[in-house]
Design a protein around this nucleic acid. Structure first.
Lengths: 336, 336
DNA sequence: TTGTAGGCGTTATCAG
DNA sequence: CTGATAACGCCTACAA
């Protein structure tokens, strides 16, 4: 059933039907009503292909995501989805892209199917990424450390969050603060490590390479690193895990080897996943508003889509919040 | 840059270019090479709108999801995405649909943008849902208890998984097994409750309405229910939480009130999220292959898409696996 | 206020 | 083997 069927049935021309359905141009009230009725009766739905062929728009936004972890993933998509839907846009999602070639391939096939692109790729050089993006497609980069580049981008304040957590541990009287880093070559991980180091340096606290344990954001990495850490002499008296999954793995390891938290070792995580407060002890963490990330991304992108002109690329940083529970040994572990 | 530009530049007609690009029809090797070269040099990308206008295909599959929890969500999407990509299809995702009206609206706007639909909606009547689907769009329903309906569908073996877990608890010598149910009017939740009851009945174990505590799949619901449960006299000596999030909330509650797990109360969950084994004590659970769910769904859907004929609607049930750790008090808590 | 007709970029069916 | 040309369904000047 096409627009012509509706036109014929309503006894008017296709042009009139089109005008009614798009609220473009003047149509008499009587005809308008009749067409609406016929369209509804025939269950007419405009053919999107034809429509976007002529309008050069798809009302769709492409989303490229890396392989990422549960809580993260769903929050981001949810934010993107809700914001997009509110503006009448759809989401074409493609995940599990781990290298530049895969991203490039995904971008290529999305060409012509989307009006804009949201790209999250924490483990790639932003500049390399930026060159892959067709100049014709507006895009906003997420978590890419692209502050210097000529692209729209939004980052989390990884540095600030890590800094706040480590400073907090030091303020609580801890002297030897260790870290389990995130995945190698991951931007978020690098920034959190940087925040950790800066906090130690600014406080004049002791630093040691031995206290920087390699992780990859997985529970098992946290577990393994914590076991190594538990055997050190002197043993660090505080641990900053670069995300909550690793922190939880670490809590488990400490329990297994009889290291008490927070008495022997204070522990802090990052992300503040819902489960954090139900850990034993409840996990202190750094909260990031992942949903907001998606929301902001869509807003910025739609702005770029609508004003095709040369907008100045903006770089935005989303703030983080320190959430103090009892795993860090704070006197008043406020349980929220 | 369109196909005409390529044709002109290569000194041939658009028909020939089209033939080369689609490997349809015979073209001399010389011309073929020349066209390939020109297309590449011009960075020609076919216009998808025009293409799908005439072919009546979009190479896209629509995915409708309810609001669901972290681990779940990402696993399903990942499975769908990978399977779809492997077959050259894209994913148009829309989440957070909570009632029939929202689903219907989402289906409507996806009309014409997708070749098929994957719908997960555990909290709706399957029949109501089925009527909303346009006859023209192939669809497969996930977790909808649509076994009797004339639609393709795939369910998890919620009943069997719950049954196995509860039977396991009983086999361990527990006599008073309680349950925290999932969200009301949720199909998965209902099936797990049914499995719980069946296991008790078949074992001739004591049953009581008081032991069926209402939950909603959230950590806090698990926490609250467990606190109520801890105060009962006689207190149940085993607890089956309808998902891991609630089980973890329950573990936290038991810790807070001094109930020992598994000595005083054995605990089992459902889903086997990655964090389960890192809990204290490590959480026994029921594993479901969420990724496979997505994979199977795409396979079934593409089959339906390609063979437009009247295929017989199939109903499939994905098996579950009991994962025994120590929270259930099993003598040998195999840590995997 | 309404209708006619051209064209969006492809593919497919014909002749040559 | 290759080239015109007619759809595909819709929007939008331009006329009436």
């Amino acid at each position: 059933v096409t627009i012509r069927d509706v036109a014929r049935e309503a006894g008017v021309s296709v042009a009139t039907v089109s005008r009614v359905l798009n609220d473009s141009g003047p149509v008499s009230e009587e005809v308008r009503l009749r067409i609406r009725e016929v369209a509804a009766r025939l269950h007419y739905v405009p053919n999107e292909a034809a429509r976007s062929l002529i309008s050069n728009k798809t009302d769709t936004i492409g989303v490229l995501l890396p392989d990422l972890y549960g809580e993260f993933f769903s929050e981001v998509i949810r934010g993107l989805d809700q914001a997009a839907r509110r503006s009448g846009y759809h989401l074409l999602v493609s995940s599990s892209h781990n290298d530049l070639a895969e991203i490039a391939a995904a971008v290529r096939v999305m060409q012509g199917r989307v009006d804009g692109l949201v790209v999250m790729s924490p483990h790639l050089e932003p500049c390399a990424l930026a060159t892959q993006l067709p100049r014709s497609l507006p895009a906003v980069l997420l978590n890419c450390a692209a502050s210097g580049e000529a692209v729209d981008s939004i980052d989390l304040d990884n540095f600030g969050g890590a800094y706040a957590m480590v400073r907090h541990l030091l303020a609580l009287g801890r002297r030897r603060v260790a870290i389990i880093t995130g995945a190698a070559r991951n931007h978020d991980a690098a920034e959190r490590l940087r925040g950790y180091r800066a906090a130690l340096r600014d406080a004049g606290a002791e630093m040691s390479e031995r206290w920087e344990l390699a992780g990859d954001f997985s529970e098992s990495a946290g577990y393994d690193a914590a076991r190594r850490l538990a055997g050190m002499r002197p043993r660090p008296d505080a641990l900053f895990a670069s995300n909550d999954s690793m922190a939880i793995g670490a809590l488990s390891a400490f329990r297994d080897v009889g290291v008490r938290v927070p008495e022997d070792v204070a522990v802090g995580g990052f992300d503040d996943i819902p489960l954090a407060r139900y850990m034993s002890p409840p996990l202190s963490s750094v909260r990031v508003a992942m949903g907001d990330l998606g929301d902001r991304a869509i807003q910025r992108l739609l702005h770029a889509v609508r004003t095709r002109s040369q907008w100045a690329p903006q770089h935005e940083v989303l703030p983080t919040t320190l959430v103090v529970r009892s795993s860090c040994g704070a006197p008043t572990g406020r349980s929220e």
